[in-house]
C-alpha cells in the first residue's frame, strides 16, 4: 500500500514536470521556483528528456524573433507628455474626491455625473478657476468631470494595488 501511494506521488510529480515543460519550455529557470527541482529529478527519464528536446527547439525558434528597439524619438515623445509641476497634487486630488462624494450623495445623480465627462469642458472650467474667472461651482463640476473621465483607469489602478 505504501509503495502504491509513493508511486502515485511520483506520478503526480512527473505529471507536474511535464506540465511545466508544456507551459514554460525547456529552461527550468523559466519555471515556477517551487517546481524547478523537478527538472533534476526527471531529466534522465527518457520520455521527459524527449519532451525537453522538443520544447528546446520551440524555445530556440521563439528566441529567433527579436523585437527592434524603440527609437530615441519615440522615447522623447513618451517623456514629452509627462506631467509638469502644475499637475494637481495628491492633496488636491483627495480634495476633489471628497467633493465628488458630496456631489454624488446630494446634488448630482450618477447619470448626470457621467454626462459631465467631457474633458474639454472639465479642463476649460478648471483653467478658468485657476485664472480666477469662475466661481466655486465651476471648480466642483470640473473636478467631478475629470474624475469621471479617469474612472476606468482608476479601477485598473485599484486592482493593481491589491
Amino acid at each position: 500500500m505504501a509503495r502504491r501511494i509513493s508511486e502515485t506521488a511520483e506520478q503526480r510529480l512527473a505529471a507536474r514536470a511535464k506540465a511545466c515543460v508544456a507551459a514554460f519550455g525547456a529552461d527550468p529557470a523559466r519555471w515556477p521556483a517551487e517546481d524547478q527541482s523537478l527538472y533534476v529529478r526527471f531529466e534522465n527519464d527518457p520520455a521527459f528528456a524527449a519532451a525537453l528536446r522538443s520544447a528546446a527547439r520551440l524555445d530556440d525558434a521563439l528566441d529567433s524573433y527579436a523585437a527592434p528597439e524603440i527609437s530615441e524619438a519615440a522615447k522623447a515623445r513618451l517623456l514629452a507628455r509627462a506631467p509638469t509641476g502644475s499637475t494637481p497634487s495628491l492633496r488636491e486630488r483627495a480634495s476633489a474626491e471628497r467633493l465628488i462624494k458630496v456631489l454624488r450623495r446630494r446634488l448630482i445623480p450618477a447619470s448626470a455625473l457621467a454626462a459631465t465627462c467631457a474633458i474639454g469642458f472639465a479642463v476649460g472650467a478648471l483653467d478658468a478657476q485657476r485664472a480666477g474667472a469662475a466661481d466655486e461651482e465651476a471648480l466642483v463640476y470640473a473636478e467631478a468631470a475629470i474624475d469621471a473621465a479617469f474612472q476606468e483607469e482608476d479601477a485598473l489602478w485599484a486592482t493593481g494595488d491589491q
Partner: peptide, 22 residues
Amino acid sequence: EDAAQETFMRLWKHASRWRPRG
C-alpha cells in the same frame, strides 16, 4: 509606439495617486 505612448500616458495620469500596496 502608439501603444507604448498610451501606456505611459496612463502612467503619467495616475502617477500622483500611485500607492504600491503589494
